[in-house]
């Protein structure tokens, strides 16, 4: 493939977080003024229906107004999403011993990639999440006792309290 763009896809529960909230987080997570390196590496919102399209345009207008500068982030319809190779998935998790425990729970590759537990583990291991939800989640991720200890130590070793800019 020479015409693809690297993206990530999130399945979310709209009763917990809205698409607008995710858009807000997206805008906070990149520099919308920077020119894209290439088609492969560019900031982009790929909408899947007209509601998402309208909300994406609305959020872009707000950012443009707030920054008072042109915004290079593109908004386009999603045509097709291809899963990246396995080594790209839950990248941080894969370099830890916790991965073995997740592989036992999910011998099937598709299930492992789409698991909430693996996504959340990867997030915590990367320093994202809230300290108050971590203390609950740590027992819900299917880890052994030693796995839970490894996770808690890894999170503590990050040196900064868990924070996530998600709307509360």
């Amino acid at each position: 493939m020479g015409d693809h763009t690297e993206t990530f896809q999130i399945d979310f529960d709209p009763t917990i977080i809205s698409y607008m909230d995710l858009l807000q987080l997206f805008w906070q997570s990149h520099n919308p003024k920077r020119k894209a390196w290439s088609r492969q590496y560019r900031a982009i919102i790929l909408y899947q229906n007209e509601i998402q399209h309208e909300q994406a345009l609305q959020s872009k207008t707000q950012v443009k107004t707030a920054l008072n500068t042109p915004v290079t982030t593109d908004i386009l319809p999603l045509v097709k999403f291809y899963l990246a190779e396995g080594y790209h998935q839950k990248y941080r998790l894969q370099s830890t011993p916790l991965m073995e425990e997740m592989r036992i729970a999910y011998p099937n590759n598709q299930e492992w990639i789409h698991s909430t537990a693996t996504a959340r583990l990867n997030g915590y291991l990367s320093g994202y999440g809230l300290a108050e939800t971590f203390s609950v989640d740590v027992t819900q991720l299917g880890l052994s006792g030693s796995g839970e200890s490894i996770l808690a130590k890894s999170v503590a070793m990050l040196g900064t309290p868990l924070t996530c800019p998600l709307p509360r």
């Binding site: 390196w37 899947q48 819900q140 299917g142």
Partner: peptide, 30 residues
Amino acid sequence: MSLHTQTQTTKPPIDQTVPLHLETATFGLG
């Protein structure tokens, strides 16, 4: 009655309840 074997694994508790309605969002960060 059919006879089959199946490997049983236990899903993490957090994955045992799936919301009825999920939506999908797709982004690229450059």
